[in-house]
């Protein structure tokens, strides 16, 4: 069954169109990464899916219903972001108790174990926490709610590396125990890619790519070789990125299924894999030019 279906989803905010006819569907109980550059529309999309914002046009179905103003969807969905507002008059311990009253599948035992593991004290106040700590606490609420639709919007902002690794591992372990549909937006695809079943890449409000993770890793390859050779070889092929290295060497990223390994080898061209996160960067480069051009 599909947990989330979007057809031609469009969002207009004042004069800006922040989402342009985005269509995709996410099967139940999968972990999907939502990636893209700053301002690509990740948060807008996630907020619409969580029912916080209304779509301007197109269809959105979450658990079979339009999420906006749906009590059913909001009971079964949690949206975790670094903009969460929690009352300052309640201690962390009380906040967990109150969160538990909202979510029918809340696991209080898990919440309190995580809170203890990550070094919180029950009587701490939320607003006195550092950004990283606050996001860790948010993430604990997100995991413990065990909502059938769990949305993490850049959950690891400010977390140190150790906490990030622990959070990803906790997410996977709890997902294995209680499978649910998880959306995870991140600027660090390389950190989360092993957890993901599929990745949705947004670019300036449009869906740039939505593929199983394994396919993304094998969409493109990098060719390194003498400039002339590389240019000749890549003629009439889909080039995603080109960069010259040194005097007479060019690095070119092209579609993997257009490369004949044997032929490339014969031409003295080295073929290397392109990581999913680099590939996404190449796909969403803004127009032409690079940072180096600024300094010319």
């Amino acid at each position: 069954m599909e947990a989330i279906v979007c057809e031609g989803l469009t969002k207009k905010q004042k004069q800006l169109t922040t989402l342009k006819e985005v269509s995709f569907s996410i099967p139940e109980n999968t972990i999907v990464g939502v990636v893209g550059r700053n301002g690509a529309g990740k948060t807008t999309l996630l907020k619409i899916l969580a029912g916080l914002w209304r779509a301007s046009a197109g269809n959105v179905h979450v658990l079979g219903e339009n999420p906006f103003n749906s009590l059913y969807v909001s009971t079964n969905t949690i949206y975790i972001s670094n903009e969460m507002v929690l009352p300052n008059s309640l201690s962390l311990s009380v906040l967990l108790t109150e969160a538990g009253r909202f979510y029918p599948r809340w696991n209080d035992d898990l919440a309190r174990r995580l809170v203890e593991y990550f070094g919180f004290r029950g009587n701490d106040l939320y607003t006195q926490l550092s950004t990283g700590k606050r996001n860790t606490f948010n993430a604990i609420i997100g995991l413990s709610s065990r909502c059938p639709i769990t949305i993490f919007d850049e959950p690891t902002t400010g977390m140190d590396q150790a906490v990030r690794n622990d959070f990803y591992r906790a997410l996977l372990k709890d997902y294995l125990q209680v499978p649910r549909t998880i959306l995870l937006s991140s600027h660090h695809l390389e950190e989360v890619e092993e957890l993901l079943e599929a990745v949705l890449l947004l670019d300036r409000g449009k869906k740039q790519l939505y593929l199983p993770m394994d396919d993304v890793k094998h969409e493109a390859v990098g060719l390194t070789g003498r400039t002339e050779m590389v240019y000749t070889y890549t003629q009439a092929k889909t080039v995603f990125y080109r960069e010259s290295i040194g005097m007479d060497t060019t690095y070119t990223v092209i579609k993997a299924n257009q490369v004949d390994m044997e032929k490339a080898k014969q031409l003295g061209i080295q073929v290397t894999p392109v990581s999913a996160s680099d590939f996404c960067v190449y796909l969403t480069r803004a127009g032409k030019g690079a940072i180096d051009d600024v300094f010319q």
């Binding site: 999968t30 972990i31 990803y168 591992r169 996977l172 372990k173 294995l176 092993e194 957890l195 993901l196 079943e197 993770m213 394994d214």
Partner: peptide, 17 residues
């Protein structure tokens, strides 16, 4: 697939493959 996913911290669908 679930044990493998836990052992290597990977998506269980990848392990199943």
């Amino acid at each position: 697939q679930y044990t493998l996913a836990d052992m290597f911290t990977i998506n269980p669908a990848t392990a199943a493959k």
